[in-house]
Amino acid sequence: MALHFELVTPARLVRSEDVWMVQVPGTEGEFGVLEGHAPAMAALKDAPLRVWKTEGAAPEEIMVQGGFAEVSAGGLTVLAEHVEG
């Protein structure tokens, strides 16, 4: 059960890996994305993105600015203008 997660900035591809869950800070509330999530597009707040590599592991926080998330059959893609961490 893995979700393919990609984090892309204009300068480079920051992450491209399989993770368990990602918590995404949408403008209308945070939501978690697991494998098999329904297709969605959401604008993001300037807030940390939480990534769980495996179930029960400590989440890793990545600060995103100017973000946009797209969930499709291929996984979760986050486009961000700036990324920290």
Binding site: P39, M41, G66
Partner: peptide, 23 residues
């Protein structure tokens, strides 16, 4: 999109589009 699956937009399409245009 070949799958034709309904995509959830949050906020709606127009607002996302407006946010994405400058980007």
């Amino acid at each position: 999109d070949a799958s034709g699956a309904a995509v959830d937009y949050e906020p709606d399409e127009e607002e996302i589009l407006a946010a994405l245009l400058p980007r």
